[in-house]
C-alpha cells in the first residue's frame, strides 16, 4: 500500500520509525507542512516523492497513492484534508480534526464524499486499550463511574485538551451523556472539571489543567464497574531516580504503540479488512459534548429532543 504523509519533519520521523510495523505499507510521498525540512522528512519516511503541497501531490501522483495520512496541529490541517479529498482516496487526519462541532461540519461539507477518518490516537494508548478490552470482555461489568485526571504543562486550547477525555468516556459507555456540568473556579487558571451523567446510572468526572510547571504531566484513568475496576494511573507507573536531592519519579513510557495501533487500524480499513473505523460522525458526537461542556460553565445541560439544552 502506498501512503502519502503530510506533516512536520518531526512527525515524519515518528511515522517513519514505525514503518516496519505496518505490514505491506510504505510511505511513497511526503508533503512538508508547518515549515518542515523536506529532505529530513523524505529521508525519515523513505519516501520517493516530495511535493510542496498536497494539491501538487494530488495533481501529479494521485493514481500512485492508496491513502493519505495528515498529521498537523496547525490550522492548516483542515485545508490539507480538503486538498487530499480531491484525490478521492481515504484520509487519516489528526491529531485533532476539529475543535468544535461547527468547524467539523464545515469541513465535512466540503469533502465531496471522500473517506475522511478522524484520528483518535488516544484510543490506541496501551493502557486505554487494556481497560477497553477488560470492559469488552465483561470483566468489569456495567460501568458505574469513569474518573479521569489529566494534567499538562503546555498551554493549549481547552477544547483540544478535553476532547480526548470526553471521547474516551463516551467511547467506553458507547453513547452520549444525558447531562453535562462543568466548573472552572475563580483562580484564573487554565483549568476545567467536567461531570457527565449517562443513561442508566453511569457517571464520568474529568479534571484537566494546563497549568503544571514545565516538564511534567500526569494522567490517571479509573473505570469502576459493577463486578470489577481498572486503574490506569501514572502514579502506578513511576520509577525512581535517586540523585542526592529528593528521589525523582520517572514514568515508564508506552512508546509509539498508540501511533502504530492507529495506523494499523487505518491501513486495515483501507484494505477493506476492518469492517468499521472511526467516522466523522463519531467525532461530531464528541464535539457536540465538548462544545456543551464549554458552552455555559456552572450550568447543567440536558440531552432533550436531539440536542443539549441548558437548564
Amino acid at each position: 500500500m502506498n501512503l502519502a504523509f503530510a506533516g512536520s519533519a518531526s512527525e515524519a520521523v515518528r511515522y517513519g520509525s514505525i514503518t516496519n510495523r505496518i505490514e505491506g505499507a510504505n510511505w511513497s510521498a511526503f508533503v512538508p507542512m508547518d515549515g518542515a525540512d523536506a529532505a529530513k522528512g523524505k529521508e525519515a519516511l523513505g519516501a520517493f516523492v516530495v511535493e510542496d503541497s498536497i494539491d501538487a501531490l494530488v495533481e501529479g501522483h494521485s493514481k500512485e497513492l492508496d491513502a493519505f495520512v495528515i498529521h498537523s496541529a496547525s490550522e492548516s490541517l483542515q485545508e490539507a484534508a480538503k486538498s487530499a479529498g480531491k484525490a478521492g482516496k481515504p484520509i487519516l487526519a489528526g491529531p485533532l480534526l476539529a475543535s468544535s462541532h461547527g468547524a467539523l461540519a464545515a469541513l465535512t461539507s466540503e469533502m465531496n464524499g471522500s473517506a475522511l477518518v478522524p484520528a483518535f490516537t488516544w484510543r490506541f494508548i496501551p493502557a486505554i486499550q487494556s481497560l477497553k478490552a477488560s470492559l469488552d470482555a465483561g470483566k468489569l461489568g456495567e460501568i458505574g463511574l469513569i474518573r479521569l485526571h489529566r494534567w499538562h504543562s503546555e498551554a493549549s486550547d481547552m477544547a483540544d485538551r478535553i476532547i480526548p477525555a470526553i471521547d474516551i468516556a463516551t467511547w467506553f459507555f458507547g453513547h452520549r451523556p444525558t447531562k453535562i456540568f462543568s466548573l472552572q473556579g475563580t483562580s484564573g487558571k487554565d483549568y476545567i472539571q467536567v461531570h457527565l451523567q449517562f443513561e442508566g446510572d453511569g457517571m464520568v468526572v474529568i479534571d484537566d489543567t494546563a497549568d503544571l510547571p514545565d516538564g511534567g504531566d500526569y494522567f490517571s484513568l479509573t473505570v469502576i464497574g459493577g463486578t470489577g475496576a481498572a486503574y490506569a494511573d501514572d502514579h502506578r507507573n513511576m520509577n525512581l531516580v535517586v540523585d542526592g536531592v529528593h528521589p525523582h519519579a520517572i514514568r515508564t513510557g508506552q512508546g509509539e504503540a498508540h501511533l502504530i495501533g492507529q495506523l494499523k487500524a487505518f491501513v486495515n480499513h483501507v484494505r477493506g479488512e476492518a469492517a468499521e473505523t472511526l467516522t466523522t460522525q463519531d467525532a461530531a458526537d464528541v464535539l457536540d459534548v465538548s462544545d456543551t461542556v464549554l458552552g455555559r460553565v456552572g450550568s447543567v445541560a440536558v440531552w432533550k429532543d436531539g440536542s443539549y439544552e441548558f437548564e
Binding site: L145, G185, Q193, H195, D201, V205, I224, T227, A229
Partner: peptide, 27 residues
Amino acid sequence: DLAAVSFEMDEGLVGTLCMGRIGAASH
C-alpha cells in the same frame, strides 16, 4: 453506593469527590 460530587468552595476553589463501596473484587 456510588457517587460523584462536583463542588465549589469559598475562596474560589473547586473540586470533585468520587466515592463508592465498589466491592471486594475491585481492589
